[in-house]
Simulated scan of single mutants.
Amino acid sequence: MPLRTFNASLPGLPVNSSEAWAPPMDLDVFYRPDVVIITLYVAVLTSSLSANTLLIFIVIKFQYMRSVTNIFLVNLSVADLLVTLFCMPVQIAKSVTLLWYFGEVMCKTVNFLQGVAVASSVFTITAMSVDRYLAITQSLRQPWMPSRRGACSLLACLWLISLAIFAPLLAVAAVEREMVPMLARTKNGSVSIKIED
C-alpha cells in the first residue's frame, strides 16, 4: 500500500509537520454515506414490514384462509419479518457509518437471526415444493391432503433445525476493537489525523 502524506495533528508532533503515514487498513478517507442505498433500504424495510404484517393478520383473522399453503406463507412472512426488524436497521446504520456501535450482543444476535431466517425460508420453500409435488403426483391415486397440524409440526422442526445449524455463530461472532484514524479536513485544506480506539 503506498504511503500517503498528510499534515498530521498528533500528540507529540508539530501541528503542520508533513509525515508519511500508511493507514493500518484500506479505509475510504472521507467516507460519505450512499443516500440512494439508504433510501432503497428504507423503502424495502417499510414495504416488507407492512406486507408481511398484513399477510399474517389476514391468515390469522379469517378461518377460511388457514390452508396448509397459507400456513407455509405465514412462516415465510415470519422469517422475512425477522430480517426486516433485526437485520435491515443494522444494514442501514452500516451504510451511514463504517464503525460498529451496537456492541457484542447485537453482533451475535444479528448474524445468528439472519442465518436462521434465511435457512428457515429455504426449508419452508422446499417443504412447499414437496407438498405441491405430492399433491400433483398423488392426485390420481390417493389424494395428498396434509393436515394443518402436520404442517405446523413440520415447520416447528424446520425452525429447530435452522436454530441448531446457526448456533455456532453465537460462539464465533465477536466484535474486535481496532485503532481507527479519524481524519478531518481543516479550513486551509490540510488533513488532521486523530487516532481513536
Rank of each mutant, 00 (worst) to 15 (best):
L3H: 12
L3Y: 14
R4W: 02
R4G: 07
A8H: 02
V15H: 13
S17V: 08
A20S: 15
P24M: 04
M25P: 00
L27D: 08
D28M: 05
Y31A: 03
R32S: 06
R32L: 04
P33H: 06
D34I: 10
V35H: 09
I37S: 14
L45W: 10
L45T: 10
T46I: 11
S47N: 06
S47T: 14
A51Q: 07
N52L: 01
T53P: 06
T53A: 15
T53L: 15
I56N: 08
F57I: 13
I60V: 14
Y64Q: 15
M65W: 09
V68I: 13
A79W: 07
D80F: 13
V83W: 07
F86M: 10
C87A: 14
C87G: 08
M88K: 05
P89I: 03
P89E: 04
V90T: 10
Q91G: 08
I92R: 02
V96S: 04
L98G: 09
L98I: 09
L98P: 00
L99T: 14
W100N: 05
Y101E: 13
G103F: 03
E104H: 10
E104M: 09
C107H: 08
K108G: 05
K108L: 03
V110P: 02
Q114I: 01
G115R: 00
V118Y: 14
A119R: 02
A119D: 06
V122C: 04
F123N: 01
F123M: 07
T124W: 00
A127K: 03
D131F: 04
D131L: 03
Y133N: 06
L140V: 13
L140F: 14
R141S: 14
P143G: 11
M145G: 06
M145F: 11
P146V: 08
R148P: 01
R148F: 01
R149H: 13
R149K: 15
L155A: 07
C157P: 00
L160R: 03
I165G: 00
A171K: 06
V175H: 05
R177Q: 09
V180I: 14
M182I: 07
A184F: 10
T186H: 04
K187C: 06
K187W: 05
K187P: 09
I193K: 04
K194N: 10
